[in-house]
C-alpha cells in the first residue's frame, strides 16, 4: 500500500508538469497583458515595469524562471494586488473556499447516500420515482441557474436566509452557497447509490444472508452498504473537481471572498501569476484527493488491498 501510494505520487509529477505548461501557454496566448490600461503608459515606464516582472524575456525564459520558482513553492508576485505574493493570496482565500467545499461534499454524501438507499429499497415505488425525478432535475440544471433561483426564493421572497456574504454573519450565510454547490452532487450520488445498492442486493452473497435469516435492514448495514458505496467513493474524485469549479460560480453569485473570486478577477485582469498559481494549486489538490480516494478504495475492498 505504501509502495503504491509513493508510486502514485511520483506518477503525479508529469501530470502536474503538463498542467503547468498548458496553463502557462494558455494564459500567455490570451490577448492583452497585465498592464494594458485605458491610460497609455509612457514607453519608458512600460519598459521598466516589463523589465521588473521579466516580461521582456522570451517565453521559454519566463517559463523556466516561473517553473524554478514553483518547485521552491514560490508562485511569484501578483501583478495586480501589489505587495502580495500569489502564495499569500491563496493562503488567505483558500480556508473559506475549503470550508464551503467540504461542507457541501459532506452534505452531498449524507443526503445523496440516504436518498439512494431509500430509493433502492423502495425500488419502483412512488418514493423511488420521486427521488429519481428530483435527482434528474438536479443534474440537469446548471449551478449558475440554481444559485440565483435559491437566492430569489429563500432570500428575496421568503426572507429566511441572507442573500449575500458581506454584512451578514454566522452560519446562515453559508447555507445557500453550500446547498447550491451540493445539489448536483446530491443528485449524482443518489442515483449512483441506488443503482449500485440494487446491484449488490441482487448478488449471491445477499441471497446467502437472506437464507441465514437476516432482515433487510441488517443485510444493508452488515453486508451490502460497504460494497454499494464503492462506486460512490470512485465518484468522489470527479465530484471534488466539480465542487471546485462550481465554487468559482457560487462565490461570484454570493459575493464570497474565496479563491474562486480571485480566480475570476485574475483571469479578467490578466494577472498571469495569480491565475497560474490557482490553476496549479487546484490541479495538485485534485490529484491528491483522487489519490486519497484510490487508497480508501483499497481499504474498503480487501481483494485490492491484498494484491
Amino acid at each position: 500500500m505504501l509502495r503504491y501510494t509513493l508510486l502514485r505520487l511520483l506518477g503525479a509529477i508529469p501530470t502536474l508538469l503538463l498542467v503547468i505548461v498548458l496553463a502557462f501557454l494558455l494564459v500567455h496566448a490570451a490577448p492583452g497583458g497585465p498592464f494594458d490600461d485605458e491610460r497609455v503608459l509612457p514607453p519608458e515606464i512600460a519598459a521598466n515595469i516589463a523589465a521588473y516582472y521579466h516580461l521582456d524575456e522570451t517565453l521559454p525564459q519566463q517559463f523556466w524562471r516561473y517553473l524554478s520558482g514553483v518547485v521552491r513553492g514560490d508562485f511569484g508576485p501578483s501583478y495586480r494586488y501589489r505587495d502580495h505574493t500569489v502564495s499569500q493570496l491563496i493562503g488567505s482565500a483558500f480556508p473559506l473556499s475549503l470550508k464551503i467545499g467540504a461542507l457541501s461534499m459532506l452534505l452531498a454524501v449524507i443526503v445523496g447516500v440516504g436518498a439512494g438507499i431509500v430509493a433502492a429499497l423502495r425500488q419502483n415505488t412512488v418514493a423511488d420515482r420521486v427521488v429519481m425525478t428530483v435527482a434528474m432535475t438536479g443534474i440537469s440544471i446548471p449551478i449558475f441557474v440554481v444559485a440565483p433561483v435559491l437566492v430569489l426564493l429563500f432570500a428575496v421572497k421568503l426572507h429566511w436566509l441572507p442573500a449575500g456574504w458581506s454584512g451578514n454573519a454566522g452560519y446562515a450565510r453559508l447555507l445557500l452557497p453550500v446547498v447550491s454547490l451540493a445539489l448536483p452532487q446530491i443528485a449524482y450520488i443518489a442515483r449512483l447509490t441506488r443503482a449500485s445498492l440494487i446491484d449488490v442486493l441482487g448478488s449471491d452473497f445477499v441471497r446467502t444472508a437472506k437464507a441465514q435469516g437476516l432482515g433487510i435492514v441488517a443485510i444493508v448495514r452488515f453486508h451490502a452498504l460497504k460494497p454499494a458505496l464503492l462506486p460512490v467513493l470512485s465518484f468522489m474524485g470527479p465530484a471534488i473537481a466539480a465542487v471546485l469549479t462550481g465554487s468559482v460560480v457560487v462565490e461570484e453569485v454570493f459575493g464570497i471572498p474565496g479563491l474562486g473570486q480571485f480566480f475570476v478577477r485574475g483571469a479578467l485582469n490578466r494577472d498571469y501569476t495569480l491565475v497560474l498559481g490557482i490553476v496549479i494549486f487546484y490541479a495538485a489538490l485534485i490529484i491528491v484527493l483522487n489519490l486519497i480516494v484510490d487508497v480508501l478504495y483499497g481499504v474498503i475492498d480487501p481483494r485490492i488491498r491484498h494484491r
Binding site: D204, R207, T208, K210, A211, Q212, G213, H223
Partner: peptide
C-alpha cells in the same frame, strides 16, 4: 427469518459468490 439458518440451512453452489468478499 426465524426458521432460516436455525432450522433450515442451505449451502450454495459457488462459495466464492455465496460468501461476502468484503467481510
Amino acid at each position: 427469518n426465524a426458521l432460516r439458518a436455525e432450522r433450515i440451512a442451505i449451502v450454495f453452489q459457488d462459495p466464492l459468490q455465496a460468501l461476502n468478499p468484503y467481510l
